[in-house]
Design a protein around this nucleic acid. Structure first.
Length: 467
RNA sequence: GGCGCCGUGGCCGAGUGGUUAGGCAGAGCUCUGCAAAAGCUCGUACACCGGUUCGAAUCCGGUCGGUGCCUCCA
């Protein structure tokens, strides 16, 4: 498996650090419905893990739920004013965690393949890390919380900003203006924020000071990844917008106390989903959710295919036309999948594109080249319009399993025709042989009502399930 | 302002020096009793200007346009 590493800006061979490939994916902040752009990041992470697994590696894939942060606190206070802050928080986050899990399943991600972890279940580890960072001189106390010192980090010989290649001069001006916190320097970031009135809080005391409050965003991922995967682990994923400051800060926190390699060997970031040329975002109010897609009659899996048709390092374009194209392609692929049940002994066709050429493994291990994989599938599937031979049908069954293992489109779940439908199909065959067109057409309509489409070829009828 | 990325036919999207990628959408034709996600054909794409080269969508320079991060963000 070759992967582009944001750390080195080059592709490299994935060489597992241990028997199990350890992946950490920055998960959702559970204060609202995920939109398509958010989901794209998880489709990417899921595809990556699928590909690594398919290569025969054991994988431990951890994803966090960020279930405490400023936005969550604000939203929970607003939605549940009658509850205590911590109860309101739990109420809100549990609702959206459930929603997120539903979305994950809907878009074809393998929920059972992840180890999920909530930030609020790792507060102790976060506190411990903060205390150690403070003890080692990388953190300092301020009026409103605990901060990480970039200067101290650099003094210790470590590099800050290697992912984003960001410099002091490039950020300082913009950041000072937005600086609401009591930082020593603009780059420094909060490890811990002291409680304000009406906010949930966890106890923390350093140097005898009561710092009760909540963890900063970045420390959550550092503590959770370290707890679940150790240091260093193999791959860290997230959207490109997480490169700075989130991942830079994670690296600093996780690396400050360690000698040797930094927190993860490979950082893999997916690009944005665009709408009308602009990044889909809550703040821009140009986002769509799975519910919006469903309302227009499209399936979440069509969205998955639409996302996968663009390489993860490139910007993907969301449009209804694009989604429709993906939905049609998905439907056509399913129709081909149904051929698995319709092997025709008369057919001797051998695919013009060989099974070997259509193998997904080589292209998927080439930096997760999903567009190429889709092209190969198109090539292969386009060959059985007149029917499929017994041997090809058998191989197709195997191929579908492979497609599903990589792309998660559930093509191999194709089901046999029901007995009733099969009976109608047989009757229609008889009617056609007898040139009783009226009956044949009637039967075709009956089948359609059972969501079975039929077409006639010189070799006989071919059916497919309608979605 | 700093650091990046991108610009291919209606919509996507491959293609890193030399034959039509492909999909979806559209038009026409054909096969078929009709129909069909069937077959065939078509629109002759590569932002612009230079340069390198026998030859560039593909390399180099510039121009224009778009956009991302720098603030919560997938």
């Amino acid at each position: 498996m070759r992967l582009y590493n944001g750390l080195t800006k080059h592709q490299q061979q994935l060489e597992p650090l241990s028997e199990t490939v350890r992946i950490y994916s920055c998960g959702p902040t559970v204060y609202d419905q995920a939109h398509i752009g958010n989901l794209a990041a998880y489709i990417f992470a899921d595809s990556l893990r699928r590909a690594i697994s398919a290569e025969g590696h054991q994988v431990l894939h951890v994803m966090n739920y960020t279930d405490v942060d400023d936005k969550i606190i604000a939203r929970s206070a607003k939605n549940y004013p009658q509850l205590e802050p911590d109860q309101a928080l739990t109420e809100l986050t549990s609702k959206y965690i459930a929603q997120f899990n539903d979305d994950m399943v809907a878009i074809g991600n393998q929920l059972e393949a992840y180890k999920f972890i909530k930030a609020t279940d790792s507060i102790e580890e976060m506190k411990q890390l903060i205390i150690e960072l403070h003890k080692a001189g990388f953190a300092y106390l301020a009026d409103d919380g605990v901060y990480f010192s970039i200067a101290k980090y650099r003094q210790s010989g470590k590099v800050y900003g290697q992912l984003s290649t960001i410099t002091d001069s490039s950020t300082s001006e913009a950041r000072i203006q937005n600086d609401e916190y009591d930082k020593a320097t603009p780059h420094d970031f909060a490890l811990w924020k002291k409680q304000k009135p009406g906010e949930p809080a966890w106890p923390l005391s350093i140097d005898g000071q009561d710092l009760s409050g909540r963890p900063g965003w970045h420390i959550e991922c550092s503590a959770m990844s370290q707890k679940q995967l150790g240091i260093p682990f193999d791959i860290h994923t997230g959207g490109i917008d997480l490169i700075f400051p989130h991942h830079e800060n994670e690296i600093a926190q996780s690396t400050a106390l360690h000698k040797g390699p930094i927190m993860a060997g490979i950082f893999a970031h997916n690009n944005h989903v665009l709408v009308d040329g602009r990044k889909m975002a809550k703040s821009a109010n140009n986002f769509y959710t799975l519910a919006d897609i469903a309302a227009k009659g499209f399936e979440p899996l069509a969205l998955r295919l639409m996302i996968l048709q663009t390489h993860y390092r490139r910007e993907a374009h969301f449009s209804w036309q694009n989604l429709e194209a993906a939905q049609n392609r998905l439907n056509n692929w399913r129709a081909t999948a149904d051929l698995v049940w319709q092997a025709n002994p008369q057919m001797t066709d051998i695919p013009a594109i060989s099974w070997q050429e259509a193998a997904l493994q080589p292209v998927m291990s080439d930096n997760l080249d999903t567009p190429r994989a889709i092209f190969l599938i198109d090539q292969l599937f386009g060959q059985w319009n007149g029917g499929i031979s017994t041997q090809d049908a058998q191989q197709l069954r195997q191929y579908l399993i492979s497609v599903d293992s990589y792309l998660g489109l559930n093509l191999s779940t194709t089901t046999k025709l029901s007995q009733e439908s099969q009976k109608l199909l047989d009757e229609r065959h008889t009617a056609r042989v007898a040139e009783d067109w009226a009956t044949a057409d009637k039967l075709r309509n009956q089948l359609l009502k059972a969501d079975v489409e039929v077409r006639d070829t010189p070799q006989g009828q071919i059916w497919n399930h309608r979605r």
